[in-house]
Design a protein around this nucleic acid. Structure first.
Lengths: 125, 125, 125, 125
DNA sequence: GTGGTCTAGACCACT
DNA sequence: GTGGTCTAGACCACA
């Protein structure tokens, strides 16, 4: 599925959450598809089952998956209804800050644009 | 200088680091300007001196300030000679994560591109 | 593991940093091997856990180890791809200072060269 | 005379001590030559007189200079009598450690030799 | 169990 | 006054 990087400063469970999100958003896993069981993923990643459990709970809380007792955990459907403009605003605020920092680090506008476009292309593939 | 949010999930020292970086990046504080002393800021923010110390040291590691025992802590000059690729990489990682979040919130690639371009234009003005 | 010298002008945490680096550099401890936990080493050396923590974090900054919350601290793999010129520069500075000291003690250039070449030969055997 | 680097982790007085040693060992300043007065150097370097005082005392303690009350501080003569083999041994030990670290950082024997020879040439000029 | 953060308060060297 | 180190002891999140 994805690889863990212990050297990362991110906690393991956070990496699992992010990894799963990645798979869901990118479309690799689709609506109602079943995620690996806690035990299974625990073995695959050589990670304590509690950690997987926690990650799945977090994903459920964030609305990415739903779980059915006794059956497993499944990809939730994304509601396309209304875009949460407030949430979008907060994220753009963060990006703005980061862009300012890139300027500060010596990158010019074109270079920043180039790098971000690269990120966007990775995504759309 | 800035406010602490005790409820935040960010640790106190991290908030101080970010707050100071903000002041430096935005240009409010300039090269060789003196930051408040450890004890002073400790009183101002009602935070233990050790915590301030830790924040200042982190800022020093990241190259934003330099400390001289007996004199104080000062804003460092950013060397524009070589761009700190590691720092840039970390920031791009953050932006990548945020972009992923925007996708999940229902924005499509074009919309995201449009909004980020807007941020970049604001900046270049 | 190693001994602390309380009389030394070096701070305790610095001695721990150097001691650990020694173990890593000499190859006594190898990649991904686990260092003693903060609390464990704290007891072994009769030093406050905070001090050990500080030493471990310094080692992490310098790229010698990586820490994973809940698991422990481990020897990092040295990336031989790019030589860390900054680290090399610092070491050469130390050597320069030492060479200056040798001159002052009455050794001439040839004698110093001879002795250092001897060190290099020992190593390459 | 020499420049101070506040950004260095070395304390100011230590930089002054090292700077003076450099001038003495390199032969720029010779036996019985007078060092600038405390007040004078204090102004030149924009440093607190106490700091200069301390540096001069340290130089005297290490045998590089001697001071005559009311007259000033002067360069001492280096005694070429007997080389302190113990001191030499300790320094070589330090250099050995540093060389091992250079190896660890990915430099090979030839590269290390090249860099150290460069240091030695700087000196002999 | 692990690392990480924080406080309170002491002590040191340097300016 | 300044930054820096250390201890003692508490609490947290993560595995």
């Amino acid at each position: 599925m994805f690889q863990l990087d212990l050297k990362s400063r991110k906690s393991i469970y956070e990496q699992i959450v992010d990894g799963c999100k990645e798979l869901i958003i990118s479309g690799v896993m689709k609506k109602d598809e079943k995620l690996p069981s806690v035990r299974e993923l625990s073995k695959t990643l050589s990670v304590n089952p509690n950690t997987i459990q926690k990650a799945y709970r977090e994903l459920e809380y964030q609305g990415y998956v739903y779980s059915v007792t006794g059956l497993g955990t499944f990809i939730a459907e994304r509601e396309h209804a209304a875009v949460d403009e407030q949430a979008v605003g907060e994220i753009l605020q963060r990006i703005k800050k980061d862009i300012r920092e890139l300027y500060f680090l010596g990158l010019d506008g074109d270079e920043i644009k180039r790098r971000i476009d690269k990120l966007l292309e990775e995504r759309s593939v």
